[in-house]
């Protein structure tokens, strides 16, 4: 009876969802969406506080946010407060994993890995690490940023775990990096409040759009996010690795 009732409820819900959305809401099709009139319009033209006219890559100076990557300008500047929250979400998830899974003090043994994996890991590891660092330091210029860069750093440590069955990670350094990077992110916001009067305001000069040293605090924030995400996900990898072996 309960299952029939649940099934009926789910079907009813699906029907309402499908018909309601298809019938009455004119959501634009893929590629037909209109930006003007939405908040995103001002993000793209970088004219939230003052109109600057056309933005030209490599020429425009001191534009609002100054980030060549428009997505980054939203994530790390216009809505940086949301990103601080997202970083906290990941932080909390990592804390949760270590509370639930990180109890076992001894690390178990994995199956011995193959010769090719073991040999190549030593070569690939530094390349992955450097690529990860490159991605988060260039987040304001190219696709990518702190989250993908940090994930790549963590995946390089995952490779070490897979390649060497005796690999052990000293986690203390990672915990310190994680905690300090998060603290510094909030501190950057507080410094903005003191200098510019607003929390997380972009208080550094934004430079020429497209330069490595441009976009004010955006690269600073992305480096912090990259370090934080990298150390957090490495911690998750470590906790889950212990759990898998011991059970």
């Amino acid at each position: 009876m309960k299952k029939v009732f649940t099934a009926a409820l789910v079907i009813l819900f699906g029907v309402v969802l499908l018909f309601g959305l298809s019938k009455s809401i004119d959501i634009a099709g893929y590629g037909d969406g209109l930006i003007p009139g939405k908040a995103a319009d001002a993000y793209i033209n970088k004219n939230v506080t003052s109109g600057t006219g056309e933005i030209i890559f490599g020429e425009t100076k001191n534009a609002e946010t100054g980030s060549a990557n428009m997505v980054t300008s939203v994530i790390a500047n216009y809505r940086s407060f949301d990103t601080l929250g997202e970083v906290t979400v990941l932080f909390l998830a990592a804390v949760g994993v270590s509370l639930i899974m990180g109890k076992n003090s001894k690390e178990g043994k994995m199956k011995k890995s193959g010769f090719i994996l073991r040999t190549s890991a030593g070569i690939i590891f530094p390349v992955m690490l450097i690529t990860g660092i490159y991605i988060f330091t260039h987040g304001h210029l190219t696709p990518g940023g702190g989250f993908p860069g940090g994930s790549m750093i963590a995946s390089s440590f995952l490779l070490l775990y897979l390649a060497d069955e005796n690999f052990k990670l000293k986690i203390t350094g990672f915990k310190v990096a994680e905690g300090l990077a998060g603290t510094l992110y909030v501190m950057v916001g507080a410094v903005g409040l003191i200098i510019g009067g607003y929390f997380l305001i972009n208080f550094l000069p934004t430079g020429v759009v497209g330069d490595l040293f441009s976009a004010g605090i955006i690269p600073v924030i992305y480096v912090l996010i990259g370090l934080k995400v990298g150390s957090e996900i490495t911690g998750i990898v470590r906790d889950m690795h212990k759990e898998e072996v011991s059970v």
Binding site: V48, Y198, F199, I201
Partner: peptide, 9 residues
């Protein structure tokens, strides 16, 4: 927050 007037900030 961030110095951008709502609804943008």
């Amino acid at each position: 927050i961030g110095g951008f007037k709502p609804p943008f900030g």
